[in-house]
Design a protein around this nucleic acid. Structure first.
Lengths: 360, 360
DNA sequence: TATTTTAACGTGTGCGGACACACAAAATTA
DNA sequence: TAATTTTGTGTGTCCGCACACGTTAAAATA
């Protein structure tokens, strides 16, 4: 029945007062070196661990974290990281963590800059945001570094970033995985298409990484001869345009048997094609959006890769908390699992998102 | 900058003392009905939420949880749930949760009974255990129900259990999934084998469920004609015996092209066979054991299904904590995701196990 | 040497809540 | 009606820690 060691125990064993122990614990100075040593030794001996509960209770400061997120009324994907942050928030609010949400327009870098400026003006103790726009994201990171605001990024990685940590998927590896998955259904001599339904895809580094990984798989990891091609289309929101585009491709490449949709919009491809066509094309996409799931169930989409968007938000906020509150430095890169989702196991991932560890 | 509502706020607004508020909060009685109503109303109005930190700090009681686990020196699989419990423990120890580990022999029901008796004698405030032995597990659950000890089971489900909750996989569905995965590599007319490397497999309900699911897939979910057969072998620990057994099967069924190993021992099958043979047999198994991973990397094992054993332990202890401490009743059945693991995404699952949310 | 400064340490209070205890008023009982 | 018991309620202490403040003795300065 070993009870936990407290600073009182340390104090009495080291023949000092709790105040002195406290000074050592927090490196507040004004402690004689030999006394300091003694206390540290006793702490080590007794195996002292700070009681976080008591600590948080006494430590009255409030930490304000800014959540800089895409407006999720514009794209359902972004609801998920948001909901993750809210769950994390619930878990840590009694530690004095508060969060303010700032929404920006997913398709407008200018707007991002405006909103980011408001974030900075609010002088938060930490920032969590997905640097969707490379240049603008870097700009914000630079300011944060200068002002010493701990910042965690997620979803999109920025190389040489000054952020504390990046949380998300390994784009390259997700491409390799997509290759593996699509390959199951491809025959020798058939073709596979990398399809970017995105604005400015050719500049988006994470998409290029996915492509690189995908090609790597087919070039190195198996013996079939599969032709790999890549196409980008910016006006994916219009069904007819997309349909016309796809039909042209299918005519040009009659051996086209698989499509790798590099973001969460696989459902748009399915919706744009006739049933008969879809049924002979294998599709691998990302993310458990409602619309994607529908097509997963009826076998129009063969595999979805789950990027764990909810967890990205959850872990992002948690890591920020750990850093600010516990001075616990996160890993610079935290890759989340690339879950392979098929109709037979999708339910459990949906459940998981619901029940993220809420306490403690 | 809305600060959190405290019982003092409630007290002053309701014109009572904090003691009275406390009595209402804990249903300790001795409060005039109309005062009680008033307090509840004020609480609701102000949106009071108990501060868990302060609550835990003041609530000096110690909760002792008994972990009744298989001796993991006998089988590496069982290290994982154990490590999950230890991680959870670290997160909640300051809430007054202590855990004692009781190990039993994985292959000896008698021993389980003995150890379980010691657990009961210790009068714990909660028990977490995998009811590997149906009968003996039920016996323990009955005692717990009688003595009112909250108990959570994991890994193996017991139907009509009196346990608070079961955490683990959906055996049936894991069979269906295994069917789907093996099917990728099977040709029309080939055969697939369900292989139980287990003692007393024919009585093990979860294995029967896996078989049922597996068969369901091939009977209903696709058009190929695949012959499904099932074999059990108890003396799997001896390589030569296993080898002889497998070779006999392969001779008897020359069209045998896939094996579904229903537990974590797929590596034993690989080890028992010659390389050339292994290479033409597709194997689906369970769990990310070191030995399995080796064969996953060199393509001897095609898929592993991760049952999240670490999480099982983690969540088990957490749910027990939540129930005991927060009176928060867990779902009776908590299925964990059935992760599809291939060489391309295995790393992330291994990372995940390392970094289970430790705080808060 | 007298006085100020400062390093080194101790004390006390409060964070929000749980609970033991004290105590008065109301309800029973004698 | 007096004595006793039963409600109903308030007060005070403590949980482990953080921090402001107070105290002392040695060092620095005048």
């Amino acid at each position: 029945m070993k009870k936990n060691v407290t600073i009182k125990d340390i104090a009495s064993k080291a023949d000092v007062s709790t105040g002195t122990v406290d000074r050592v614990l927090h490196n507040r100075g004004n402690v004689a070196p030999e006394v300091r040593e003694k206390i540290l030794q006793v702490m080590d001996e007794l195996g002292y661990e700070r009681n976080l509960l008591a600590s948080a209770l006494a430590y009255k400061r409030v930490f304000r974290i800014a959540l800089l997120l895409p407006d999720f009324t514009k794209d359902p994907y972004w609801e998920q990281p948001y909901s993750g942050t809210q769950k994390a928030l619930k878990a840590v609010k009694h530690y004095g963590i508060q969060a303010d949400t700032f929404l920006f327009n997913l398709f407008d870098p200018e707007n991002f800059l405006e909103v980011a400026a408001r974030v900075i003006a609010a002088q938060p103790d930490g920032i969590l945001f997905p640097p969707i726009f490379q240049k603008e994201g870097k700009w914000l990171l630079d300011i944060c570094a200068e002002k010493n605001i701990p910042t965690i990024t997620f979803n999109t990685n920025i190389e040489n970033s000054s952020a504390l940590s990046y949380i998300g998927q390994d784009s390259y590896q997700s491409g390799v995985l997509a290759g593996r998955l699509l390959n199951f259904a491809l025959e020798d001599g058939e073709a596979a298409m990398i399809l970017n339904l995105e604005k400015g895809a050719s500049n988006a580094r994470h998409l290029l990484e996915k492509e690189r990984g995908f090609r790597f798989y087919f070039e190195n990891k198996q013996r079939k001869q599969i032709q790999v091609l890549r196409r980008d289309i910016e006006s994916f929101e219009n069904r007819d345009t997309l349909r016309a585009f796809l039909m042209t491709q299918l005519e040009a490449f009659p051996n086209l048997a698989g499509i790798f949709v590099t973001n969460s919009r696989a459902y748009r491809v399915v919706n744009a094609l006739d049933e008969a066509v879809v049924n002979r094309i294998k599709i691998v996409g990302f993310d458990l959006l409602q619309e994607n799931l529908k097509h997963l169930y009826d076998n129009k989409i063969n595999f979805l890769i789950n990027q764990n968007p909810v967890e990205q938000g959850y872990i992002g906020l948690m890591d920020l908390f750990k850093f600010i509150f516990l001075k616990q430095e996160p890993e610079p890169i935290h890759y989340l699992p690339l879950d392979i989702v098929v109709a037979e196991n999708v339910q459990y991932y949906l459940n998981k998102q619901e029940s993220l560890e809420l306490v403690v």
